[in-house]
């Protein structure tokens, strides 16, 4: 009898232990990783004035000033619009390098020697002026970082994609008009001045990027952002496709390089933006 009782007690003990263990297994499964965190994004409007600078450009760097406005639907998704203007641009090292090797004046006969002058080369360059466009954003990650183990910040990381409308200002290169004579017949073949320059105007293309917000408090954050734009352009006024215009005057056929919109090619244009994000309303609640 005692053996039976002991056996029953043993079974009971095992059952109790098993029940306890089952309840104890991974109670945090499917639970959020972070509780009581500040909800910086949901249902808030974000306004981010920023300064930007292009990089990895071949001929001209552009400096941008503008802003991004964004409404956050929830923790992860938002939509917005950005607009930036470039009041200032700067030649790259490559441009300076090329210009240093060019003559100050065009050759007398550029059909024989089509080397452009310094001003002709520079006048052929386009300049980025305006970048605007809508986008949608996705913010998958947030966290906390420690800098030198002494400064700690909350941050989040976001990606975005959208459409960019980009305005390029065409170079100053224009058709050559020989003012030394009344005759419309070219006295000398000024090959590079006869370029039909068309590398300005509005272009449309995709834009995408990612950024980092570092929160200083509940409604102000520092913002750093990378932006990639892919549009058709012709930075240096090159004749990419080799097509020509032909004109016959006095039984002489002249060949003109034709630079037009067909010479534009899809090119990457990239920017870094640095700014400050302001959130409205200023109060941000905490999660459960």
């Amino acid at each position: 009898m005692r053996r039976i009782i002991s056996f029953l007690l043993l079974i009971n003990t095992l059952a109790a232990t098993q029940a306890y263990a089952a309840d104890k297994s991974d109670p945090l499964k499917d639970e959020p990783a972070v509780r009581k965190r500040i909800l910086y994004l949901p249902k808030r409007l974000e306004v981010t004035p920023s300064l930007g600078v292009s990089f990895l450009q071949d001929y001209k760097h552009s400096f941008l000033v503008g802003a991004r406005v964004e409404y956050h639907l929830n923790d992860y998704f938002s939509f917005g619009f950005s607009a930036h203007y470039s009041p200032l641009s700067m030649n790259t090292g490559l441009t300076d390098e090329i210009m240093s090797t060019l003559p100050s004046e065009l050759e007398q006969n550029t059909y024989v020697n089509p080397t452009p002058s310094k001003s002709a080369m520079e006048d052929a360059l386009d300049t980025l002026r305006v970048v605007v466009g809508p986008h949608v954003s996705y913010t998958p990650a947030f966290g906390k970082m420690g800098l030198f183990s002494s400064l700690f910040f909350n941050f989040d990381l976001y990606f975005y994609a959208g459409v960019a409308f980009v305005q390029f200002e065409a170079g100053n290169l224009s058709k050559y008009v020989d003012t030394s004579t009344d005759s419309k017949v070219p006295q000398d073949h000024k090959l590079h001045i006869d370029i039909e320059e068309e590398n300005g105007g509005w272009q449309i293309g995709p834009q995408a990027g990612f950024g980092l917000r570092i929160y200083l408090n509940r409604w102000i954050a520092l913002n750093a952002e990378f932006r990639w734009i892919y549009v058709k352009r012709n930075q240096a006024g090159f004749d990419q496709n080799g097509d020509r215009n032909y004109e016959t005057l006095n039984d002489v056929t002249y060949e003109y390089i034709r630079v037009d919109s067909k010479d534009a090619i899809w090119e990457n244009t990239m920017f870094f933006h640095f700014g400050a994000s302001f959130f409205l309303p200023r109060y941000a609640p905490r999660s459960e």
């Binding site: 972070v34 509780r35 966290g143 906390k144 420690g146 400064l151 700690f152 200023r282 109060y283």
Partner: peptide, 24 residues
């Protein structure tokens, strides 16, 4: 007004992601 805690956390933030923070 957005109230700030009277006794700020050790790291100057609101400890909203403190569950990530033990190592520091």
């Amino acid at each position: 007004k957005v109230e700030t805690p009277k006794t700020p956390a050790k790291d100057g933030l609101d400890d909203d992601v403190d569950s990530l923070d033990v190592d520091t």
